[in-house]
């Protein structure tokens, strides 16, 4: 079974960015340098709180800083334990494990100009991306929407470091990011979207209508695409065992709870590690890993997010 290696770290500092966002500084427990990372990278954090809470957070510090990592965590209204634990329980000196840095949201190499669109806590992956572009001397701009100036995480940092590149849109001042902004970028621009689902969908659709090549449009979702209507289904394993995946659980969770050593890593439908062969049954795919062709073939499933469309799936495990 694939189980990723982790790094033991300690909380060095906690700063309140805004009412709902805290910035945590992490350092390795043994004092060894942390790995460098690339712009847009994130880590998985592992917290033992009765259950194991695994969450992904973008690294907001400088990619070359090997002494500390920083992450920004927003207290989510619908927290299933992750951000609530970070906000209410985490103290300076606490220890936890983190993954090595990973990057599912890399900067384009061929882009002539980079434009970032952030809403709310969607700002976090762009901080390391801007750092990288700035040190390379590459041109970029940021369009950042927030409810108010006070609720705008990293506002002062951005004003100080990238005053020319940043434009802020505060809805209490009746300013909003309008999709027509996409019309103003020169040919060769790559655009990057991070924020709530509707924000990403609106911008992505407009970019497509304006004729942006799909390869010039990049996005990162906070959460995987959510099934609109979740229903329970049965899975048949190779040894003939039949188990039920309830509405409340993912296929992966069900497999693991039943003692089956199913592979997994990211748990958000990005890395592809949990892919299993489907021998029979129809799948509804919710991942961002398989290609359209692979999805249509209906022969493999990412168990961490995808579910059955038919009443039963027969799996090769």
């Amino acid at each position: 079974m694939y189980k990723e290696k982790t790094i033991p770290v300690m909380i060095k500092d906690i700063k309140k960015e805004t009412e709902f966002v805290k910035r945590f500084t992490l350092a390795s427990v043994d004092g060894k340098p942390l790995p460098k990372f690339s712009g847009g990278a994130h880590i998985s954090t592992y917290i033992e709180d009765g259950d194991l809470l695994v969450r992904q957070y973008s690294l907001t510090s400088s990619p070359d800083n090997t002494k500390h990592y920083q992450i920004g965590v927003r207290l989510s209204d619908s927290s299933r334990g992750g951000s609530r634990y970070w906000h209410q329980n985490m103290k300076v000196g606490d220890k936890l494990h983190i993954s090595y840095p990973k990057n599912h949201f890399p900067l384009s190499f061929k882009a002539k100009h980079h434009v970032f669109y952030a809403a709310g806590i969607g700002i976090t992956p762009f901080l390391s991306m801007m750092n990288e572009l700035h040190s390379r001397g590459t041109s970029f701009e940021l369009h950042y929407a927030s409810k108010t100036e006070e609720a705008c995480a990293f506002y002062e940092f951005l004003q100080e470091h990238y005053p020319i590149q940043c434009r802020f849109y505060f809805s209490n001042k009746k300013k909003r990011i309008h999709v027509s902004s996409l019309e103003e970028h020169p040919i060769g621009t790559h655009v990057y979207f991070c924020g709530p689902e509707s924000f990403i969908t609106d911008l992505t659709e407009s970019a497509s209508q304006l004729g942006y090549p799909a390869s010039s449009v990049h996005m990162e979702r906070f959460t995987p695409l959510q099934p609109k209507e979740v229903k329970a289904f049965m899975v048949l394993l190779k040894d003939g065992t039949l188990i039920e995946v309830t509405k409340e659980q993912t296929l992966l969770e069900t497999l693991l709870n039943n003692g089956i050593k199913a592979p997994y890593s990211c748990r958000v439908g990005r890395c592809g590690t949990c892919e299993l062969q489907v021998l029979e049954g129809e799948i509804t795919h919710y991942d961002s890993f398989l290609s359209e062709e692979q999805k249509q073939s209906q022969s493999r499933i990412l168990t961490c997010v995808s579910r059955a469309k038919s009443a039963m799936l027969s799996l090769d495990i």
């Binding site: 990723e4 290696k5 090595y100 840095p101 890395c271």
Partner: peptide, 11 residues
Amino acid sequence: LQFLMRLEAGN
């Protein structure tokens, strides 16, 4: 190619 693209640091 997909396998290589999903290679992770530390692993």
